[in-house]
Design a protein around this nucleic acid. Structure first.
Lengths: 148, 148
DNA sequence: ATAGCTGCAAAAGCTTTGCACGGTA
DNA sequence: TACCGTGCAAAGCTTTTGCAGCTAT
């Protein structure tokens, strides 16, 4: 979690990306958000800052970030609607609420759950389906019981 | 797994849907496929049959099926591209391959994995996040090791 | 200097909708 | 008959692309 311009510059360079004002703005807004914003939402959040910025640039930038491992792109929960972005690239699970929000599972809980998946079953899947499993991820669906 | 026109008629009626030629064709094609076809793919598969049928009808019909529990709509694996449909509505996991294909996990394996998720962790998630978990689903990513 | 970014607008891809007609129950 | 479903075309929404100009390195 980088805290300033200099750190962002370093972060970008480490991932082979140039540091531009737009990218700083977009990354900062994404990292500050806990709501897995859509491209559109980021656009609104960022475009009022001096010097605006176009929605196409948001998409291009988020693509660049995703490719370089600076963010994750989450498929639209229900299969339609815009997809969402997450600056937390550590592997962790999400829970999709019935109101459309997407919450992070705390990392420790994600890890505990995914650790429980028995290796023997994964081996059997690989054998029976003829695949190599690269990643196991979990998704929960539910609804809020408290006002969050 | 219904085997004939009569059974389909019954199936549709049980789910509050009228039985039409188009719906029979679409459902039959979807149920016969193991590749989680897109609407477009179903259109190709079905439109040569006598009396064609429009892509809009495919979408409308698949929506109706999904709403009534006759099929599942799977979000596009990577977050972009068309979504996919599955006539197998039993809860089961999928594995997304790097070539874009989506395979079913055999039901017994899906069940074994999802059963392993400890209730204590789910309880803790519900408590810490203030949510009620309705469904736990697993998604694997990987690649084919055999020609399938 | 030069490769990489941005902005804009336009296009592309996927999905939904409006409306008139036709078919099912 | 009354309603539901279909076809077509058009619109809608999300995302990508082309290209000219600008900027970080």
């Amino acid at each position: 979690m980088p805290e300033g311009r200099t750190d962002l510059r370093t972060l970008f360079r480490e991932h082979g990306l140039r540091c531009t004002r737009q990218r700083e703005q977009i990354y900062t807004a994404l990292a500050a958000s806990t709501s897995h914003p859509t491209a559109e939402e980021l656009h609104v959040a960022v475009k009022d800052a001096d010097g605006g910025l176009s929605l196409a640039t948001i998409y291009n930038t988020l693509d660049a970030f995703s490719e370089r491992g600076l963010c994750r792109r989450l498929p639209a929960p229900n299969g339609s609607g815009p997809c969402r972005f997450d600056a937390d690239v550590d592997h962790h699970a999400h829970i999709v609420l019935d109101d459309g929000r997407v919450l992070d599972l705390p990392h420790d809980l994600s890890r505990r759950i995914e650790t429980e998946v028995p290796q023997t079953v994964l081996d059997e899947i690989e054998r029976r389906l003829g695949v190599r499993i690269d990643r196991v991820s979990l998704q929960l669906s539910g609804r809020a019981t408290r006002n969050t």
